[in-house]
Design a protein around this nucleic acid. Sequence first.
DNA 1: GCCAAAAGTCAACGAGTGATTACTTAGAGC
DNA 2: GCTCTAAGTAATCACTCGTTGACTTTTGGC
Lengths: 187, 187
Amino acid sequence: MKNATPNIRNAEATAERILRAAQTVFHEKGYDGATTREIADRAGINLTLINRYYGSKLGLFEKAVLPHLNLQPLLQGTPAEVARRLAELYVDTGPKDGFDAFVVLVRSIASREAGPLLIARLQEAALTPLERILEGPDKGARATLIATQLAGLVLRFRIMAEIPLSEEERRELKRRLEASLHAILLR
Amino acid sequence: MKNATPNIRNAEATAERILRAAQTVFHEKGYDGATTREIADRAGINLTLINRYYGSKLGLFEKAVLPHLNLQPLLQGTPAEVARRLAELYVDTGPKDGFDAFVVLVRSIASREAGPLLIARLQEAALTPLERILEGPDKGARATLIATQLAGLVLRFRIMAEIPLSEEERRELKRRLEASLHAILLR
DNA sequence: GCCAAAAGTCAACGAGTGATTACTTAGAGC
DNA sequence: GCTCTAAGTAATCACTCGTTGACTTTTGGC
C-alpha cells in the first residue's frame, strides 16, 4: 500500500502538527515571544524539523498565520447581517479555540521581522475587502472606521479580556456597536 | 555652590537622559524589542547606569512609559471640544516627537513582563477617566466604544502609518469620526 | 533481504540578552 | 590639598535564541 496506514513517520502529518502548534503558540505569545523550541515541544516533534519543513521561523509564520488573516469570510450577506455578525463576534472573548489570526497580528505588530508582513497583508486582507463591499461615498474613510473599530475590539476583548465588563454592559455594547457598524455600512 | 553649574557628573541629568532615550526606544521597538544597550547608547551613558538608577529594564519602563499612558488631559472641555480634539489627534501620524505612550502600549502588549502592567494601567488611565466624563446611560459600553475606536486608530495611523490614505479620505474620516465620538459622548 | 532515500535525532554554534561585580575617576566638604 | 563618597566604566556571567551539519533510524521499491 502507499497512502494507507499512516505510519509513525509521516512528513505530511508532521508538517501539519507543526503548523497547528505554531498557531497556538503564536496566538499566545506573538511572533517574537514564541520560540521554536516551544512550538516543537507542543507539536511533539524535533526542533530541527521546523527548519526542514518551513525553512525558518518566519517561513512557518507565513504559512501558519498570514492566510488566516482575512476579513473576507465575515463580510458576506446584507449590511444588516454583516453588522450583526461582526458585533457578535468581536464583543466576546470568542470560542477561543486557540487561534485567532487578528490576535496574532496585534501581538506581533511590533516585531521587526513579522511586522512588515502583517502590515502588507492587512491592507489586502482587511481594508481592501471592506472597501469592496461598501457602496456610496467615502469608501476609504468608512472602511477605515470599521477596521479600526474592530481592531480596538480585538485588543479589548481578545487580549485585555481580563478587564471586567458586566453582562449588561456587554449586551448594550453589542447593540450600540451593531447599530454603528450598520450605519457606516449603509452610507 | 551646591545646585548650580551642572557638572559633567550629574546623577539627576543622567537619569533624565536615560529616561528620554528609553521613551524613544520603547516607542520605536516596544518593550521586548528595545534593548538596554541601545537605550544606553542613545542616552550616551554607560549600560550599567540603567540598572543603578532604575533597578531593571522593567523599572525603567514603569517610570518612562506608564505615567504618560493617560487619556485624562484629552478629556477636558465640552463634549464637542473633546470629540474634535480626539478626532484631530488620532487621525494623523502625529507630530511624532518621538514618544507616544499609546504606541508603546500597542507595541508592548504581547510582552510577558510589560503586558500585565499595561493592561492594569489602561483600566485606570483610559477606561475609568472616559466613564467619568460621560453622563447618561450605558457608561461602560460607551466608554468601551470610544476607547476601542481610539485604540484602533493608534494602530492604523501611528503604527501602520505607511498604508496610504488620500488627503480627501483623511478629511472625511476626521469629520465622520468627530461626529461619531460626539454622539457617543452625548448619550 | 538489500539499500537508497526520506524522516527524525543529537549536539553545538554564534549572536544577543539583562544583569552583576569589581574597578577607576571625579568632585564636594573640610 | 586631601579624602571619602558618589558617578561612571570595563569585563564578564549565565542564559536564551534561531539555526546548522553530521549522524541515526525507518520506510518502501526491487
